[in-house]
């Protein structure tokens, strides 16, 4: 059973972060949600992964309703958030140990799973290092390996390559691409068009509305009338040239504060 959402929407007080989106993602498919800043990508992913309650509409994953069967949904998905969700005062291995406990990986399998994850993320030699000493790319690899540790059927990635250098980006993308053909369904959001180009299908979201949906080739022909164009042309065509200025959210303010050195509560 795939990912299905029907008129899914979410409001924050008076702003509609996601107005109403409907789409399906089939089993084993790689799906990319594209959109400018503030388009509602994160909000959509958070509703699908039970992190946010939808204001209206329905969504289900593998047949489980994201509202009423949150526990079932959570057991079959793996998630990488836009901002790292690691404990950076713990080592890579300690972070993975917590993950194993949260997902109830049986005790005798934990060690093997952790070694495999570290191996897969090419972090075997850094397992005992505190995560706060990791580069952005290493953190991403760790998070991706962690999200796969419990054999999810669905993988959600919210801008997985943001903030990475071209090498890190390529490496991460190759790791994701290597998961193809194993029955894993991947739902990712991105700003970065070459990544979307490599996905089976792409949805373009702007101001909380899905403005296009199809394979990259379909989108090119239907929007610009030429298969020679790039997804970037399609993207600009559909979402306009206007810059998206956003007010700093509380999280942005906190992140800025963290970057400036933070506080002793960290």
């Amino acid at each position: 059973m795939p990912i299905v959402c029907e008129n899914l929407g979410r409001r924050f007080e008076d702003v509609a972060a996601v107005e109403s989106v409907s789409f399906r993602v089939e089993q084993g498919e790689f799906f990319a949600l594209l959109g400018p800043n503030g388009a509602g990508k994160t909000t959509t992913v958070h509703m699908l992964t039970t992190m946010l309650k939808p204001s209206h509409g329905e969504a289900s994953i593998a047949g489980f309703d994201v509202r009423r069967q949150a526990h079932e949904v959570r057991s079959v998905i793996g998630m990488v958030f836009q901002e790292p969700a690691l404990d950076d005062r713990l080592t890579a291995r300690e972070n993975l140990q917590i993950h194993a406990a949260l997902y109830g990986i049986p005790g005798r399998r934990v060690k093997e799973r952790i070694e495999q994850a570290l191996e897969w993320g090419q972090l075997a030699n850094e397992a005992r290092r505190m995560v706060r000493t990791f580069s952005g790319g290493m953190k991403r690899r760790l998070e991706l390996a962690r999200a796969l540790m419990h054999d999810p059927q669905f993988l959600f990635l919210d801008e997985p390559t943001i903030g990475l250098d071209p090498q890190g980006r390529r490496h991460l993308w190759e790791s994701i691409a290597a998961l193809r053909g194993r029955g894993l369904t991947v739902f990712m959001t991105t700003h970065y068009l070459p990544e979307a180009e490599a996905c089976d299908r792409v949805g373009i979201i702007d101001a909380g509305k899905l403005v296009a949906l199809g394979t990259p080739a379909e989108l090119k022909t239907s929007t610009t009338g030429s298969t020679e164009s790039t997804l970037e042309d399609v993207f600009i065509e559909l979402t306009g040239h206007q810059l998206r200025d956003e007010e700093a959210t509380p999280r942005d303010r906190l992140l800025n504060f963290a970057r400036q050195g933070g506080e002793h509560t960290r």
């Binding site: 992964t49 039970t50 992190m51 526990h71 959570r74 057991s75 998905i77 998630m79 958030f81 901002e83 790292p84 969700a85 690691l86 404990d87 950076d88 972070n95 917590i98 993950h99 406990a101 949260l102 997902y103 109830g104 962690r146 509380p250 999280r251 906190l254 992140l255 963290a258 933070g262 002793h264 509560t265 960290r266």
Partner: peptide
Amino acid sequence: LQSAIALVWDRQVGLLREVQVSPA
């Protein structure tokens, strides 16, 4: 209170979201 308030960090930039998205 220091332990508790660390949760604000945890939610925005730390482990709490990882915990919330898990079936634990």
